[in-house]
Design a binder for these strands. Structure first.
Lengths: 205, 205
DNA sequence: TGTACATCAGTGAACGCGCGTTCACTGATGTAC
DNA sequence: TGTACATCAGTGAACGCGCGTTCACTGATGTAC
């Protein structure tokens, strides 16, 4: 809240944070550039010193989100090493943890409608996040007998989809409403059944 | 396109269909009541003869969508009978098929931000759709040895989440962009692995 | 079959609003001498 | 250390726009007699 007269000091980041708070509170449609400016204690016109416009501001929020997301995934992966399985499970959990901890970023990334291909930079950081999960899947797949091994890109997509679905339907106050199970339990157990299906967990474990 | 002078004939439904087309084309945020009215060949004010306002129009589109969705699920279920497994797999596939065939309805239902609890009628039809999947899951669970049987509500949630995630990430031009696999293959194989994990498909099948 | 009348689905003008964006400007800050 | 000046992050007024919504109205339709 340090506001020292005419010059703000760090308006660019303050605008991103105001945008995140607004997106979280009112959804991507309810977010307006003018209100973000007001919340940062500044005239709407000032925004144009730092961003090309409304879309550009959202895109920056998403970019930062992907960065955090990728770091979180990487951290989870590293923590699971050297066990391929532990790494894989941890990255799945990290997805849900990210959505919970950074809802504004999450919405900017996945629900605001901005394309990941909007800028090369955005595409790159998104690809970095994805690649962590794919690496974990690739390593894990080495433990599956080759003849019954699905392509790693396929089962990383499965886990990504399952995680995304759990978040969208059960972790946000969305249409799925509530379920008797917590999103964490749902994801955990879902991944468990899935890994069993790949033969990576023995039936009696 | 039959437009016969002053009185439209079936404006209410024409507005819903215009709304669906617009939502499909421009996303839930880009949809406006005025444009839906124009597309139906009518003044914006005329909309208020049939709906309470913008939100109410979207809610009606969603309501009709849930109706179609529930019917589709029911049809898939019936077609799979008497095999519990066939019914279950068919309902999973029906989810994706619905999203593909009725994108406007799908968006109104899952991406427009309208709550399923907006009206009792909407909640009821949404519950009907959900219950088909849950019934299929319940029947299927009878084929799992009791000691390793997860609650049916849990694994119907898994399949729902997986289906939803596949649709959101891979079947629409969303952030997930493209994958080397079709959404249909992805969902099919994902459900396959999952059912294997439940012990419902033998390892060598 | 013809007329009078009630109904009500649509018109069209108007509204206030907040939006994103532009523009010439101003005044705080930092730097050169 | 003091002064002159360039820079540039912010102002504030203004814009055109399309939005959702309201209102008194009009004229097509359907019904009673």
């Amino acid at each position: 809240m340090r506001k020292r007269g005419y010059h703000h000091g760090n308006l660019r980041q303050a605008l991103v944070e105001a945008a995140l708070a607004l997106i979280e509170a009112k959804g991507p449609a309810g977010f307006t550039l003018s209100e973000a400016a007001k919340q940062a204690g500044v005239t709407p016109a000032a925004v144009y010193r730092h961003f090309e416009g409304r879309e550009d501001l959202i895109a920056e929020a998403a970019r930062q989100g992907y960065g955090i997301f990728a770091d979180l995934m990487q951290y989870a992966y590293d923590k699971g090493q050297p066990s391929a399985m532990a790494s894989f499970e941890a990255t799945g959990r990290a997805y849900l943890a990210f959505a919970r901890k950074h809802p504004g970023h999450y919405i900017a990334m996945f629900e605001s409608g901005i394309s990941v291909n909007r800028t090369p930079e955005l595409a790159a950081v998104a690809a970095r996040a994805r690649s962590v999960l794919e690496r974990a899947a690739t390593e894990l797949s080495k433990h599956i007998p080759p003849e019954k091994r699905p392509p790693p890109a396929m089962f990383s997509a499965h886990i990504w989809a399952l995680s995304h679905g759990v978040v969208e339907l059960f972790a946000r106050n969305s249409p799925g409403t509530q379920s008797p199970f917590s999103p964490e339990d749902l994801l955990e157990s879902g991944i468990g059944v899935y890994l069993r299906g790949l033969g990576l967990i023995k039936p009696d474990e």
